[in-house]
């Protein structure tokens, strides 16, 4: 039902279909290799952890499939932002963190980015490492940190999910801006270029991050009300009684 609805939602968006990833030709070989190295290292650790996790509880494979499809769907919908006059998309990994933890969300994010590069020419293969670090790794890590920071705080689950979604989105685009600044700052201080790119990102990404928070809160709350045991332990540990 939700999938059909989201699929139908796609029909309403305008026809300029672009995703927000760094494409081929922007990063120099050195930077592309560096981001690939970081991505491979992180993916190796995440895959090892996820493999252990799925062997321990094979039923989680369905959760992994759900999260991967969800992140793919959310991150190909270009949402028009009236303030900026451009379209951009949420990242969706924060909801993945609530269901699969850090490792599962990182792997799901990488699979999504790989499929988008190969099937839709969005992003690229040389820039896949950079996009993986920004969206899958930093997006998931920031959402996970928000969960940990607020794990002992007795604030409602929807608020934790909202904050995770917002921070994951903003952190992803903050790191994308940093990657661009580092790669393109030839003769210019990278710090000032980073600020310049962040300012260019702001009109689109600030409202979009808030929307991502709402989406994350909606999905996480809907799941918590129906099958709370699908959420990771870090979320549940201090949650008893809060959303009753």
């Amino acid at each position: 039902m939700l999938g059909l609805f989201l699929g139908g939602l796609y029909l309403f968006v305008p026809r300029e279909l672009y995703a927000m990833h760094i494409s081929e030709g922007i990063l120099s070989l050195n930077w592309a290799l560096l981001w690939w190295a970081i991505a491979i290292l992180t993916l190796g650790l995440a895959l090892r952890r996820l493999n252990f996790y799925l062997k321990e509880d094979p039923q989680r494979k369905a959760v992994f499939a759900f999260v991967t499809a969800f992140v793919f769907l959310v991150s190909v919908i270009p949402i028009p932002v009236p303030f900026a006059g451009t379209c951009s998309h949420p990242v969706g990994v924060a909801a993945g963190v609530f269901l699969l933890g850090l490792s599962g969300s990182i792997v799901a994010g990488f699979i999504v980015l790989l499929l988008q590069a190969l099937l839709l020419a969005h992003g690229g293969l040389s820039s896949l490492g950079a996009n993986t670090v920004a969206m899958a790794v930093v997006g998931s890590l920031s959402a996970y940190l928000v969960i940990l920071i607020f794990s002992r705080a007795f604030i409602p689950l929807y608020m934790k999910a909202f904050l995770s979604g917002v921070i994951a989105d903003w952190a992803t685009y903050g790191v994308t801006a940093l990657q661009l600044a580092l790669a393109l700052s030839e003769g210019e201080p990278w710090g000032s270029l980073w600020v310049k790119i962040l300012l260019a990102f702001t009109p689109t990404q600030v409202p979009l991050g808030l929307l991502e928070g709402v989406i994350t809160a909606g999905v996480v709350t809907a799941i918590a009300k129906r099958r709370s045991n699908l959420l990771i332990t870090e979320v549940l540990k201090f949650q008893e009684g809060v959303t009753k």
């Binding site: 999938g3 369905a62 499809a69 769907l73 009300k225 099958r227 045991n229 699908l230 549940l236």
Partner: peptide, 29 residues
């Protein structure tokens, strides 16, 4: 985009039904 989004939407719906609707657990936390 339409094809892949449609497939992803169907997968999300399928697994939502499999995980949530068919295994509904009313006793939260």
């Amino acid at each position: 985009f339409a094809l892949l989004s449609g497939i992803a939407g169907l997968l999300v719906g399928y697994y939502w039904r499999k995980l949530i609707s068919e295994n509904r657990d009313a006793s939260c936390f």
